[in-house]
Amino acid sequence: MRKQLSQAFRFTLLMTVLTGLIYPGLVTGLCQLLFPRTANGSLLKINGQVVGSTLLGQNFSSPEYFHPRPSAAGNDGYDATASGGSNFGPTNQKLIDRVKADVAKFRMENPDYQGPIPADMVTTSASGLDPDISLASAFAQAPRVAQARRTTVDRVNQLIQAQARGRRWGFLGEPRVNVLQLNVALNQSFPMAPKKQS
């Protein structure tokens, strides 16, 4: 048994160096060299300032921006250091109460939209950092955004279409739009009065 333990010790030590230091080091070196943007988190910079990551959702609540899904990450949602879902089961009273409140809020904020609420718009994502909303959720918000930005619903809808992503090869993924990128495009196409921009 002593020989076994000594072999085990040396084996674990060597593997720690090989797979725990050399392997991640090598991967880091190659990734930083080949894909520096993604290796550092796909951060989006505007005028030299980091405004977020194109991969991560962030909160938007003012009417002139498209809003993301509700989020259970951290205490206030969209905490990118505390990812996670609500973990509410389908028969949990708390889930139903929360959805009821979110449905009411969505209806109030988007009085022009009469259809059923898109499934993603009142449910929290698994990560709490979902960067996307479905196209239906974006279209449903378009009248509100158009009004706040003093433009037409058609032009906002065109912007959604331009930013929309479909299914790769016809079956991979769901039709969706990235909220942060859509809002950045909004600011470029229909800028708000300067006081809103910090």
Partner: peptide
């Protein structure tokens, strides 16, 4: 959720179904 007016059928522009705890993409 369907009783609260939430769409649970998939359409061309939204996934439908039980999206609590699932990602749009």
């Amino acid at each position: 959720l369907a009783r609260l007016g939430v769409e649970t059928k998939a359409t061309d522009t939204q996934p439908g179904g039980n999206m609590e705890g699932k990602e749009v993409r």
